[in-house]
Amino acid sequence: MTEVLLIAGMFMATFSVRYVLFAVAGKVRFPPWLTTGLSFVPPAVLTAIIVPAVLLPRGELWLRFDNPWLLAGVFAALVAFWRRDLLTTIVLGMFCFMLLRFGFGL
């Protein structure tokens, strides 16, 4: 019984927070300085997730040419600057990683 109450409580907490944000989404206007500041949040969050995974895949700093995560990350960054297309970057970056990791055994 306590599990059902716990799940119901978490549902209500999650749903209420998201519903309130969606309900007021079109009615609230942020000042331009806040909108500009919020535009930097996605790149900052992605950087905080990706950089440790690329540079510390085994829990310690690994800056050598036998690091497939680093090589594939550099390749994906070059593809992103060249093509400016998210899907192409993801597909080619993953292909490069798979080739390095499983094809060449790095």
Rank of each mutant, 00 (worst) to 15 (best):
A53D: 08
G37W: 10
V54Q: 06
D66M: 10
T47M: 06
G73I: 02
R84Y: 05
L92P: 02
P43G: 09
C96I: 03
M94L: 14
V51Y: 00
P43I: 10
F95E: 04
R58S: 15
R64Q: 10
A72N: 01
V45A: 11
V54A: 12
A72H: 01
L55E: 05
A77H: 07
T47I: 02
I90D: 07
C96G: 01
D66C: 09
A53I: 11
L55M: 12
S39F: 05
L70H: 13
A48P: 02
A72V: 04
G93E: 01
I49S: 10
L63W: 12
G59F: 09
W82L: 14
L78D: 01
W62H: 04
P52Y: 00
P43W: 09
V45C: 10
D85C: 12
M94Y: 06
V45P: 04
V54T: 11
I50Q: 02
R83M: 07
C96A: 14
L70T: 05
L61Q: 12
E60M: 04
L70Q: 12
I90V: 14
A44R: 13
W69D: 07
T88Y: 08
V54L: 15
L38V: 08
D85K: 08
L38D: 02
M94W: 12
A80H: 10
F97H: 06
T47Y: 02
R58K: 15
D85S: 09
F95Q: 06
G37A: 14
I50W: 06
G93K: 02
D66Q: 13
F95N: 03
W62L: 01
F97E: 01
V41A: 14
V74C: 05
A72S: 10
T47S: 13
A77Q: 01
R58I: 10
S39K: 07
P42G: 11
F95K: 03
V79C: 09
L61T: 06
L78I: 09
F75P: 01
T36E: 14
L61Y: 10
G93R: 03
L56A: 00
P43S: 14
W62E: 02
G93L: 05
F97L: 08
F95V: 14
A80R: 06
T36H: 09
L46H: 08
F40N: 00
V91L: 15
C96D: 00
P43E: 07
G37L: 10
A80M: 13
F65V: 13
A72M: 05
W82K: 13
A48L: 12
V41D: 04
L55N: 05
L61A: 10
